[in-house]
Amino acid sequence: MAEDKPLTKQQKKTVEASALIRQDPPKGNDLAFTHSILCQVGLPRSKPEGREFMRRSGDAWLVVQAGWLDEGNGPVEQCLPYGPMPRLAMAWVSSFALRNKTREIKIGSSANEFLKILGMEPQGARHKTLRTQMHALAACRLQLGFRGRTYNGQPVEQFDAWLRNEDSGQQSLWPGLLVLSEGYYRGLLESAVPLDNRALSALKGSALALDIYAWLAHRLHRIEGRPVLLYWANLRDQFAQEYKGKDPDKDFKKSFLPALKDVLAVYPAAKVQQVKGGILLYSSPPPIPYKIP
């Protein structure tokens, strides 16, 4: 009989977070938020080609266009935001904005502090990724659409670029202030989705897992009556339109199921069942109760 493989560092974190979430109900500091549209159609998960990205899910759709930032010597073309970092950053920024009822968010005094806020180790590669993705996020333009209503704009209205401190050799300082646009902030006030920070921290290594978690948090408690059956083709249209090989549904399924397993570990109230051809979604409590301590 083969021995069980030891758990990876990420698997251990997921197990620890699962035990904590099952044992201790979320308290005030565990509460995070994200925009409801971003729970249905997420940012790119891997580096996309070109300077525009579109994703659709049922009646909801998202278009992201790359932008420009002044990095101290004029305009610099930015890439599209992608991967876990901008998802975690937007959740933190949105949470701060709603908790403090303000569009103006004071960022940590250094990159190290901001990484710690996101639950990440302050390493050189992390700094580079953080700088790239925060600049991309601050510069991008979003169009969010749902059932006849379209939001056009940028989540971030004002952002002072992360400048390199070439003279002192010290770690570059973050700007003191980031300002959300009025439209994006109003959307948060109207339809923000509460999430558990402990779950976000456990899933921070996978953009797909973060997207599945946010989607289930938004979707499951809205189901009434009979469970909802979603086929692999439907799920791929929502989560992974980039899978376009010989058997895209099969390729997507291989990525989706392990990510779903991690999500269900940190969202124990979620009732999701794999069935032939897809998954069944059952009405479930949200990850954050309607009233928390």
Rank of each mutant, 00 (worst) to 15 (best):
R56C: 08
A138P: 06
K12N: 05
C140D: 06
L137E: 02
N112E: 15
A19Y: 08
F239K: 02
E104M: 15
Q238L: 04
P289D: 06
K271L: 03
S284E: 04
D167A: 13
I105H: 09
L88M: 10
A125D: 13
W162G: 01
P86T: 05
Y290R: 14
Q238T: 15
D24R: 14
M134L: 12
K246N: 12
E104N: 13
G205D: 08
M85F: 13
P286R: 00
L173C: 11
G83E: 01
A240S: 05
Y184P: 01
L31Q: 06
S110P: 04
H218T: 03
D237H: 13
A199R: 00
L115E: 03
W215I: 02
Q78K: 06
T129D: 15
Q11K: 10
C39G: 04
V275L: 07
L195D: 04
A32K: 08
A233S: 15
Y213A: 03
H127W: 07
L220K: 06
L177T: 14
L62F: 04
K250P: 13
A136C: 13
L43G: 03
T8C: 04
Q171S: 15
G83Q: 00
A32L: 15
I279E: 05
A66F: 01
M120K: 06
Q40N: 14
G108Q: 14
Q241A: 11
G205Y: 09
D247S: 11
E182R: 15
G183S: 09
V272K: 02
S110T: 14
H218N: 11
A270C: 04
G245I: 05
N152Y: 13
Y185F: 09
I223C: 00
P75Y: 10
E121D: 12
G183T: 04
A32F: 11
E182S: 07
R22G: 10
N197Y: 14
K246R: 09
T129H: 13
G176K: 08
N73D: 14
K27Y: 11
I117Q: 12
I37Q: 08
D59R: 08
K47R: 09
R141G: 10
V266T: 01
G225N: 07
D249G: 02
A138N: 07
E77L: 12
G169D: 02
V193F: 06
K116M: 12
Y290C: 08
V156N: 01
P155M: 07
K204R: 11
F53W: 13
P293H: 08
A66N: 01
R164Q: 09
I279P: 04
K253M: 15
F239W: 04
Q23T: 14
F33S: 05
G148L: 06
D160A: 08
E52S: 11
N100I: 02
L43W: 01
L115R: 05
Y282A: 00
A270M: 02
V64F: 03
R22F: 11
Q273C: 07
M134K: 01
L144F: 00
G278C: 00
D24E: 14
L173Q: 14
P122R: 02
D160R: 14
V15L: 12
G124M: 06
K276D: 15
S95C: 02
A265T: 05
A214R: 03
F252M: 06
I212P: 06
P285V: 05
P227K: 03
L31K: 09
H221W: 12
A202F: 00
A161M: 14
G183P: 07
I292Q: 07
F256C: 04
M1I: 15
A214N: 06
R99T: 15
K276F: 10
